[in-house]
Design a protein around this nucleic acid. Structure first.
Length: 981
DNA sequence: GTCCGACCGTA
DNA sequence: TTACGGTCGGACG
């Protein structure tokens, strides 16, 4: 190396993590191998190399190397055992990419450099020093602040993803100190991601100011007593030693003994065929094409090169040593079908093959529920816990006396370590069914607090994966006992990510489907109906069989289903949209919302009075007393005895008395049907809301805790029950009053933030409709715009009826429109509705194309996808029954739109808690209503909370998806939900 | 007691 | 025309 040469050092390990989180997820089409970060890495390398003169760096590299971390243990761990101790395991779909990126590097003909005991950063520091000493210049491709200490007039950094150069001025601008003071700055601030302590209470701003004043860390520490702020002075004196230790940790080692000499890093020319062989194996088609063009290679001539990948059966523990080394891209014998955990220790299998062998094994292994252990002493429990900890994987289940997690009491819990090896730990079983007083606690159970104390370290141990069926329930139960389970997998959610569509994801049905095993029914254990008992009354033998089976089945399901995530390309959906939401929703459910009992009680009285008055009038008009709430009796009276015209029948042959039918009669001048409609509205509000809601107020928290179902819908939406807080009235003034009972705690406000027209915006994006995109870009009234476009009526002074029809059509489009449905909705003839639809498609031909393409995709694949890759399956779309087929087609058109919107708000929710915490706001998310989030915030934080909430929600699709239409969020704060919405 | 259909509240 | 959950009446056992 000589004067004028230029060395590029790529921070390979840093790039992997950053690319994984910043780039949209991507999986290899043929087998679901996750390759998003690999793709980003290859594109970046190609950009840097293809024509050095034209790169964004604007510099011609003469030498080039990609540097990696060797392992997680380095010399820094001997300095400080806690170094990087809080790192969690890399996401499962990232793990195979570590190896792939090294192979990519070699395919690019570039040296791959790593060294045991040292971090990539130390190697980079060493090579940078050597290059400068040899007279060369250096560009470090990374954006990691830990490397900024290396920047000087010969060494710069380049952020390959933001396309930004970082030299001395940029460092000063960002951190307020020149690069040579970065070490001192980091020693003061510490770094929570690397677990570097620093000095408490000192952030980058304070650190920069102190270093400006005192020059360097040693001077600062020596003269700490001069600092005026008392707290700061005390902290610096107290934690001086900690700062010195931090300095040792953050100082990069620039004298690592190197194995590859500087001169060996000379940039070789690209080997087109070699690179293309790799890119083809990765199935990066567009990059393959570009490389072929530039290097003048005929890509068709080149075979994909077999690629080695590490594909883990389970991501758990910080080091992830458990993984399967497999050859992908070549035919291999499936050798690993062993039932032991962790699965796979050398067999050559692709994700798809492993999934298949696991499915076969799962159904082949029979289940015997009589072999489970009942644990009744602490020592035995501790043995199981120790084994679980050593294993790194355990299935976990709680038994309670209620399905409502906020009021359920813990009765016992079960663990499974391996298929067939499960145990039940009774904790609160009662004795003496014959005892008049109900019996006391059963003898021979581990005291609850002791059992929980023993379990807590394992349940919270980051190196032990906990598996449950519907983890949100168990998480919340344990959360109420001071234990926050992590990390975890959820078989229900894995099933949901894989197989959302008709058919549920309950354990019983999953067991039958995947294990061929009929589970013991809860009812067979606790009894039926009147004679049923709570689980704490069940004898231990039967309780052990039932509870042990739950854990055993859960573990087996996990083994059968988990590998399918990678094989079918659904790992990202599961890990980004399902699993992280568990804790978010559990915390929302635990918080609950405050309801004013008095308001509801008063409303109930009012409703009862009004309904009674109408009831009398109804009897007078009908000439007899009858049960107005019985559609059967009502239909017979209206259309039988009284002979009203225009009756229609339901599919069971009864007279229909739907609101639509009654409204039509009322419009024709009949008094009685109007009264019925009014009576129905009042009694509905009373029975479903004002009477029912107070029963859900929790005895201790005095708040209402709804329960969200994560796997109940085919589209990705949540559902809410017990009580359902997603259908609280809003359309009528009478109904709205119910919302005034949902109130903020004293000193707080409720904030309601809702997406404006999110589904139509998603439609505009996915169907790529220019007029719609422009209308949203300009924040126009979308229904008026549609009406104007369709009927040629100017938006100014548009009759409301015209807009109403356009609005109905817009919704119809989202729902997979039919002339029949639109005619029904608008009460117009079917011919007229059909004409509307034709006109709409003429004005927006892209929508028709999109709908046809979606139907064709669904027919071909049996499912449709959201913009984030969530799938909804519609196997019946190929039905020979035309009605069935049409229904499935409409649902398939709707699912990507409704589902994408659901995914967007899921993203927002997953990020929200951290965003609020980062802004030091104590606002809390309470409710989700499909396109709306409700928060409770202290009065003083309302404005700032709205800013953060809006920002997170409006940018929720990024970076996974870049929408071509802006998202807009309306937010308002008030004392109650009615005024806030 | 349990299940299903009709009806209706929300997005 | 999409997606849900709750209440009621009424039929079934």
């Amino acid at each position: 190396m000589k004067n004028g040469d230029h060395l590029f050092l790529i921070d390979g390990s840093g790039y992997i993590f950053r690319a994984y989180h910043a780039l949209p997820p991507l999986t290899r089409k043929s087998d679901g191998l996750p390759v998003g970060a690999v793709s980003g890495f290859c594109n970046m390398l190609w950009k840097l190399l293809k024509d050095a003169r034209n790169t964004d760096v604007g510099i011609v590299p003469t030498h080039f190397a990609v540097i990696f971390d060797y392992s997680s243990k380095t010399f820094r761990n001997t300095l400080y055992s806690e170094y990087k101790a809080n790192r969690t395991a890399p996401p499962e779909d990232l793990i195979p990419q570590f190896g792939l990126i090294r192979q990519a590097t070699r395919a690019f003909n570039l040296p791959c450099i790593e060294k045991e005991g040292f971090e990539a950063d130390d190697l980079i520091a060493t090579y940078a020093r050597l290059a400068v000493e040899a007279g060369g210049d250096v560009t470090i491709v990374s954006s990691d602040k830990d490397l900024m200490q290396l920047v000087n007039h010969k060494v710069q950094m380049y952020d390959g993803m933001k396309d930004k150069q970082i030299s001395i001025p940029e460092v000063i601008e960002k951190w307020g100190v020149p690069p040579e003071k970065m070490i001192d700055l980091q020693s003061l601030t510490g770094d929570s991601t690397d677990n570097i302590p620093g000095i408490p209470g000192i952030g980058p701003k304070t650190a920069a100011q102190l270093l400006g004043e005192y020059g360097n860390l040693d001077t600062l520490l020596a003269r700490a007593s001069e600092i005026k702020q008392q707290k700061r002075r005390e902290n610096i004196i107290t934690f001086a030693e900690q700062a010195r230790l931090s300095r040792e940790l953050v100082t990069l080692k620039n004298d690592v003994p190197i194995d590859v000499e500087l001169d060996e890093l000379v940039l070789d020319p690209q080997d087109g065929p070699k690179l293309i062989g790799f890119l083809k194996a990765m199935e990066f088609t567009s990059l393959t094409r570009r490389v072929a063009e530039t290097t003048g290679t005929d890509a068709a001539e080149i075979e994909p090169v077999p690629v080695e990948t590490q594909w883990g059966a389970a991501a758990h523990g910080p080091d992830m040593e458990v993984s399967v080394t497999v050859a992908v891209g070549v035919e291999v014998e499936v050798t690993d079908v062993s039932p032991s955990l962790p699965a796979g220790s050398g067999g050559g299998v692709t994700p798809a093959e492993l999934a298949k062998s696991r499915a076969n094994a799962a159904i082949a292994e029979k289940i015997d529920t009589t072999t489970y252990v009942c644990i009744r002493d602490l020592a035995t429990l501790q043995q199981w816990i120790d084994e679980a900890t050593e294993n790194g994987i355990v299935a976990f289940d709680t038994e309670t006396n209620s399905l409502l997690p906020m009021q359920a009491e813990l009765i016992g819990l079960s663990l499974a370590l391996a298929p067939g090896r499960a145990a039940y730990v009774p904790l609160s079983h009662k004795s003496g069914a014959g005892d008049l007083l109900g019996g006391g606690m059963l003898e021979g159970q581990i005291p609850l607090d002791q059992a929980l104390a023993a379990l807590k370290p394992m349940l919270e141990d980051r190196s032990v994966l906990k598996i449950a069926q519907n983890m949100k329930f168990d998480w919340l139960i344990m959360h109420r006992h001071g234990i926050d389970i992590a990390p975890f997998d959820d078989t229900m959610l894995i099933s949901y990510a894989l197989d959302a569509g008709p058919g549920g994801h309950g354990m019983d049905s999953l067991s039958e489907r995947w294990l061929g095993h009929k589970t013991i029914q809860y009812k067979d254990v606790t009894g039926n109906g009147r004679s049923s008992v709570t689980f704490d009354m069940v004898d231990l033998e039967r309780a052990t069989a039932y509870a042990g089976e739950d854990a055993d089945v859960t573990l087996r399901l996990w083994r059968a289903l988990k590998p399918r995530l990678a094989a079918e390309g659904m790992a990202t959906v599961y890990e980004r949209l399902e699993r992280p939401l568990v804790e978010v929703l559990a915390r929302m459910e635990a918080r609950g919302i405050s309801i004013d009992r008095q308001i509801l009680s008063r409303l109930s009285g009012d409703l009862a009075q009004s309904a009674a008055a109408i009831e009398d009038e109804i009897y007078k008009l009908a000439g007899e007393r009858f049960n107005i709430g019985s559609p059967k009796q009502l239909g017979d009276i209206l259309f039988g005895r009284m002979g009203f015209p225009g009756g229609s029948k339901t599919k069971t042959g009864q007279w229909s008395t739907s609101a639509q039918v009654l409204e039509d009669l009322a419009a024709a001048g009949h008094e009685l049907p109007r009264k019925i409609v009014d009576w129905r509205q009042l009694t509905k509000l009373k029975s479903t809301y004002t009477d029912a809601l107070p029963g859900f107020i929790h005895a201790e928290t005095k708040r209402v805790h709804t329960c969200y179902a994560m796997a109940a819908t085919s589209t990705g939406r949540l559902s809410s029950s017990d009580p359902n807080l997603q259908n609280i009235p809003i359309r009528t003034t009478e109904g709205r009053k119910i919302r005034t009972a949902f109130i903020a705690a004293p000193g707080h406000k409720l904030i309601s933030a809702d997406y404006s027209q999110i589904e139509l915006r998603v439609l505009a994006h996915v169907a790529d409709i220019p007029q719609l995109k422009q209308a949203f870009a300009e924040d126009m009234d979308i229904h008026a715009m549609t009406a104007s476009e369709m009927f040629g009526v100017p938006v100014e002074g548009m009759p409301s009826e015209v807009r109403r029809r356009a609005k109905a059509i817009n919704f119809g489009i989202i729902y997979g429109i039919s002339a029949f449905g639109l005619a029904n909705q608008l009460s117009i003839p079917r011919e007229e509705a059909g004409q509307y639809i034709r006109t709409y498609f003429e004005r927006f031909p892209g929508i028709r194309d999109y709908m046809e393409a979606t139907k064709a995709f669904a027919r071909a694949n049996g499912y449709v996808e959201t913009i984030f890759g969530r799938r909804a399956h519609y196997p019946e779309i190929r039905s020979s029954n035309p009605q069935m087929r049409a229904f499935n087609e409409r649902a398939a058109i709707n699912a990507p739109i409704q589902g994408s919107a659901a995914d967007i708000i899921r993203h927002a929710m997953i990020r929200m808690d951290d965003a609020l915490a980062a802004a030091k706001l104590s606002a809390r998310m309470l409710l989700q209503v499909h396109d709306e989030l409700v928060f409770e915030a202290p009065d003083k934080e309302v404005e700032e909370t709205i800013t953060i909430v809006r920002h997170i929600m409006e940018n929720a699709a990024m970076p996974a998806v870049s929408l071509s239409v802006p998202l807009r969020v309306d937010a308002r704060a008030a004392q109650n939900w009615d005024e806030a919405h």
